[in-house]
Lab assay of single mutants.
Amino acid sequence: TTVHVNGVTYHFPNPEEAKKFVDRVVKEAGLTVEVKGNQWDVE
Rank of each mutant, 00 (worst) to 15 (best):
T1F: 14
T1I: 15
T2K: 05
T2I: 11
T2W: 11
T2A: 05
V3T: 00
V3D: 00
V3H: 00
H4I: 15
H4K: 14
H4T: 15
H4P: 00
V5S: 02
V5N: 01
V5F: 14
V5R: 02
V5I: 14
N6A: 05
N6D: 06
N6S: 04
G7A: 01
G7Y: 01
G7Q: 01
G7F: 01
G7K: 02
G7R: 01
V8H: 10
V8N: 05
V8T: 05
V8A: 05
V8M: 07
T9M: 09
T9R: 09
T9L: 09
Y10S: 04
Y10P: 03
Y10C: 14
Y10Q: 03
Y10A: 04
Y10D: 02
Y10H: 12
Y10L: 06
H11P: 03
H11W: 15
H11R: 02
F12I: 00
F12R: 00
F12K: 00
P13V: 07
P13G: 06
P13R: 04
P13K: 09
P13F: 05
P13S: 13
P13Y: 05
N14E: 03
N14C: 11
N14K: 01
P15N: 09
P15C: 15
P15D: 13
P15M: 14
P15L: 13
E16L: 04
E16D: 09
E16S: 06
E16K: 04
E16N: 04
E16G: 04
E17N: 02
E17D: 09
A18T: 01
A18G: 01
A18S: 01
A18V: 01
A18W: 02
A18E: 01
K19V: 04
K19T: 04
K19P: 01
K20D: 08
K20G: 03
K20W: 03
K20C: 14
K20L: 08
F21G: 00
F21N: 00
F21C: 03
V22R: 05
V22L: 14
V22C: 12
V22G: 02
V22P: 00
D23Y: 02
D23A: 04
D23M: 03
D23I: 02
D23W: 01
D23S: 03
D23F: 01
R24C: 15
R24K: 13
R24N: 10
R24Q: 13
V25C: 15
V25L: 15
V25D: 02
V26A: 12
V26F: 14
V26E: 08
K27C: 13
K27M: 10
K27G: 08
E28M: 10
E28W: 05
E28D: 09
A29L: 15
A29H: 13
A29C: 15
A29W: 08
A29E: 09
G30M: 08
G30P: 05
G30I: 06
G30C: 15
L31C: 15
L31R: 08
L31W: 13
L31P: 06
L31V: 12
T32F: 04
T32E: 08
T32A: 12
V33K: 05
V33S: 07
E34K: 14
E34H: 14
V35M: 08
N38I: 05
N38L: 08
N38S: 07
N38Y: 03
Q39L: 11
Q39P: 07
Q39Y: 14
Q39G: 12
Q39H: 15
Q39D: 13
Q39V: 12
Q39R: 12
W40A: 11
W40P: 11
W40M: 11
D41C: 15
D41A: 06
D41E: 14
D41M: 08
D41G: 09
V42E: 12
V42W: 07
V42S: 11
E43V: 15
E43C: 15
